[in-house]
Amino acid sequence: MKDNESISKYFTRILTIVNQIKRLGDKIEEIRFIKKILRSLSSKFEHVVVAIEESKDFNNLTIDEFGEANQNSLWYLDSSANNHMSGKRELFATLDESQQGEVTFGDSIKRPMKGKRTIGITLKNREQQYISNVYYVPNLTSNILSLGQLLEKGYNIRTKELELSICN
């Protein structure tokens, strides 16, 4: 994994290689590639590796399920986003679909917002927390946490060297 590479780009790159190998007729044990991906992630993702290793039954996990689970658990911190957003409908146990509107991104592209609700996330220490007022934006490929919205709710945000911490 390259130092400046995101997990999703790295996973896409590895999946492309796996698919090329499969097209050549090679029989591949998917568990072998999943373990290689986990071993090759940089140390800054160690907490993600531990969480995946402890929560997944590797013997029954396909590479597609691994990628999907990985994408659902990633949240990007965005200082320019006004609201928390996710395009993953399955993250919302219930959804208030009476809350509809439009979201405008920094590049002026507009996307429909099809609902709003509180969702649960698992923290690095495996503690369950909830994020309220998360917009459901269909087809949004990343989960976004708004730093501004966290500050409004009273969270403290600290940066030191290459680490950002959020405390309530």
Rank of each mutant, 00 (worst) to 15 (best):
T122N: 08
E127C: 08
I109T: 02
N59P: 00
D64A: 00
V50D: 12
K36E: 10
R39C: 13
K116T: 06
Q71A: 13
E90Q: 13
K110Q: 07
Q129F: 04
I109H: 01
V103D: 05
L123P: 03
V50Y: 12
F45H: 12
F33S: 08
L15T: 04
W75N: 08
N70R: 12
I144S: 04
G87E: 03
E163A: 13
K35D: 12
K9V: 11
K2S: 15
K116L: 02
L38P: 03
I166K: 02
F66Q: 03
R117W: 03
Q129W: 14
G120K: 15
L41N: 11
K124G: 05
A93I: 10
L123Y: 07
A93C: 11
L150R: 00
S132Y: 10
D26W: 13
G106C: 01
R117D: 03
L91R: 01
L77S: 11
I63R: 04
A93N: 11
H47P: 06
L41H: 11
K110V: 12
L151D: 13
L147C: 02
Y155S: 15
E65F: 01
S108W: 00
G87A: 02
N133K: 11
K160T: 02
A93R: 09
Q128R: 15
E163I: 08
L164Y: 09
D107V: 07
F58H: 13
A69C: 13
N168C: 15
D3W: 05
A69S: 06
D57P: 07
I166Y: 10
